[in-house]
Design a protein around this nucleic acid. Structure first.
Lengths: 208, 208
DNA sequence: GTCTATATCATGATAGAC
DNA sequence: GTCTATCATGATATAGAC
């Protein structure tokens, strides 16, 4: 996300990331990227042939970075509830560091889904393994029965959406009090974990 | 959302709504709106002085339409759990009919939050009454203790986010099978209601 | 590799006839 | 109110000197 080398190419990538993430593909201006990188527009086209290509490079990097966070944790051997807790922690942690990613990704996948398709195909992303694990835990009676994909949708929604809707939450809930907003996001991980556990963990034999 | 009169102004509003909602303020082209309305660009500027003003008219309409759905239900006298169920039903129902609204609103509030500010101020939107109701039910021991704003955030997230991330869900989960996607969204209301009830309703005296 | 200058084009907006 | 024709701007992209 933040390339450290100070070569021209790295300066461009860093500047482009900032501008694209905050303005989006259509809102971003090559002039602004050039200014932020401390160079001129011509050089942008020298390194990356077009705005489109520069954007694709950045977008792939962001998706690669934001997407497979789950996959790593899911492949471990721990009990399902522990995995879920780790996934929630990892997600909230990531999003607190990069709160603008969700709005950016939502914007761009809705503008041009083909960019996503290429990446999904390229990384061979397939959630079936995760669903199978969840189904197994349900069949063993550890957690309540529900369609695994809905459980995953619920968890991811609660993690990501409050960041995508950040301006609403900031203004409506906290009147743009930055400290209160930060505190809210810091609480999210614990809140979501508790909520999910209450919703799905079977304690005695009381539930089917 | 769909003005029925066939006056020129209404045709413009309908066309502009379609184009703005799918393309966003920056992606939308006045030419495309004119084409879809069956007129020419000059007339757009005759009725609405600028693209900016046309957009504001549409955006206000969308927000006014998408926002206060909750408020109506919340002011009734029913028990809190019943209200929550109704809110979820109302939201999913609305979003199935207008699945592109979430991505549009997220895009635009992140692009220019000031548009939201004006509307919030104008409608005097204040969630405190809702939070108070929830807190009361918690104090009465009907539902588990948690910060009301987090409960609201959880519910709204689970309702809205899957629509905002529609292209991802469509492709990754259902390989663009439209019927399967529709079925998924149709299930959401029941799934979310059950999930929330499991998470918060206190049945015996087992929980504090 | 980096710059200045310029080509090319698309878009929002307006003028003016009818 | 509605149209055609045109302007003015600003953006991506390129040419060519150093």
């Amino acid at each position: 996300m933040e390339p450290k080398k100070d070569s021209t190419e790295d300066k461009i990538l860093e500047a482009a990331t900032n501008v694209f993430v905050t303005k989006g593909m259509e809102g971003a201006r090559m002039q602004e990227i050039a200014d932020e990188a401390g160079i001129n527009k011509a050089l942008l086209h020298y390194y990356f042939r077009s705005k489109e290509r520069l954007f694709e490079a950045i977008f792939a990097e962001i998706i690669k970075f934001a997407f497979p966070k789950i996959t790593r944790i899911v492949t471990s051997d721990e009990p399902i509830v522990s995995k879920i807790e780790q996934v929630i922690d990892a997600y909230i942690d990531l999003l607190i560091k990069h709160p603008f990613i969700p709005a950016f990704v939502i914007k761009e996948i809705n503008r041009d889904p083909s960019g996503l398709f290429k990446l999904v195909v390229k990384f061979g992303l397939n959630p079936q393994a995760i669903f199978d694990q969840i189904q197994l835990a349900m069949d063993r009676g550890e957690i309540v029965q529900m369609q695994p994909r809905h459980l995953v949708a619920n968890i991811i929604s609660m993690c990501i959406f409050p960041f995508a809707a950040r301006p609403i939450i900031s203004f409506v809930l906290f009147k743009d009090d930055q400290q209160a907003l930060d505190a809210f996001y810091a609480e999210r991980a614990e809140v979501i974990k508790q909520f999910v556990i209450n919703a799905i963990v079977i304690k005695n034999k009381e539930k089917v």
